[in-house]
Amino acid sequence: MELSLLAVILGFVLDLIVGDPHWLYHPIRLVGHLISGLEKLLRSIFPKTEQGELIAGGFLLVLTAGITTAVAWGLLLAAGLVHPYLRFALEVIMCYWVLATKSLKTETMKVYDALKEGDLKKARFAVSMVVGRDTEVLDDIGVTKAAVETVAENASDGVIAPLLFLMIGGAPLGFFYKAVNTMDSMVGYKNDKYLYFGRAAAKFDDVLNYIPARLSGMLMCGAAAFCGMDSKNAWRIYRRDRYNHSSPNSAHTEATAAGAMHIQLAGNAYYFGKLYEKPTLGDPDRPVEYEDIPRVNRLLYATAILSLVVFGLVKGIVLWLI
């Protein structure tokens, strides 16, 4: 088996076993520090006009993605000069850093545990760690929906999309994707501060996720069958509701999960004290319940494993043909 493919597989397994322990400093946080530092620098250089902020945001995108990818590539090159197996071991770890399957489950199961204990305040705090919306006014069902939605949505950009980029270009391309996705999560807001400065990052993130989001939705439809869920209804809702979001990519897996579990997700939500009217995803065939959090995590794992198998087979065939 080609070593880069094996590195992705082992990194995937390592992520499922270890996740992201809080005591261990995650290298993606360095990307966040880089973005914050470059933002301050670029804002001090370029004029505070619409055009100036657009240009500054473009430089942020190029510099962040370029530096992150170059560092990842350079580290692997240096490790390879020492010994090929050191390079392989480093790439396994780097692939593990790019993926976030277990961390999604771990953080949302904290919400589930708090809800089961009847501690709504603790559940609100736990879900506030993984969603961007205001959580102070959410009731127990609102908290549950928020947790389910974040697993469903992040199944694509937190797991399937980075896995696809790792399969295509190894750890450097995986870090390239994570750099852009991290920029989008930090500056890709449509508010007064980031409407122009964050536009380049947001638009490029949309481009990078265009194919992965659609693959993720389709793979999740297939994975639903392995979880004892309704894959036929998942496909129906996916086709009907996948564009019920302001982002061209965000609703694909969320709509699929709603269909697979026969629940309704999304709808209006508060962000930074302002109510945003959003369309719903899925049909309210039954009420949302606490158990939907472990259910959607089972769907996440099934989708991730199916994606690994499909992407791995495709890459294996391509390598064999070459």
Rank of each mutant, 00 (worst) to 15 (best):
A257M: 03
K121M: 07
G188F: 03
V159L: 02
V288S: 04
M229L: 15
A200N: 07
A213L: 12
L308G: 10
L81P: 00
V310Q: 11
A171I: 00
L54H: 07
T256M: 08
I263A: 09
T101Q: 13
T69L: 14
D15I: 07
C221R: 08
N233G: 06
A161H: 05
I35P: 03
G228C: 12
I305P: 00
H252R: 05
L75V: 14
T64R: 07
K274V: 15
F272H: 09
G316R: 07
S185K: 05
H26N: 03
G118Y: 10
G19K: 11
T253L: 12
K178I: 07
L5M: 14
S231V: 10
S185C: 04
Y177H: 06
T101C: 13
A89V: 12
W73C: 01
A200H: 09
L30N: 08
Y210N: 12
K102R: 15
E254L: 14
L34N: 02
R240D: 09
S250K: 09
A100V: 01
N154K: 08
Y177G: 01
P284K: 05
A251N: 03
S156L: 00
H83D: 15
V13A: 06
E254I: 08
R133M: 00
I17W: 11
Q51A: 14
N233M: 15
T182W: 04
A126I: 00
C95S: 13
G316M: 02
A72D: 01
A213M: 10
V314C: 08
N249P: 01
A65Q: 07
G282A: 03
L90E: 09
A147V: 02
E289S: 13
V98Y: 08
M167H: 12
R240G: 05
F88Q: 05
L163H: 03
E53I: 01
V180M: 12
V288H: 03
G174V: 02
G273R: 01
S44M: 06
P287W: 07
A56V: 07
M218P: 00
K102G: 10
I45F: 13
G32K: 07
L61H: 11
Y194M: 04
A302I: 00
A202Q: 10
K315A: 08
R286S: 04
W320S: 09
L86V: 15
M109I: 10
R214Y: 13
F12H: 02
I28R: 10
L163N: 02
L41P: 03
F88G: 08
K116N: 13
A223V: 10
R286P: 02
G312I: 00
V310I: 15
Q51H: 11
N249K: 08
H245V: 01
R242H: 15
G11L: 01
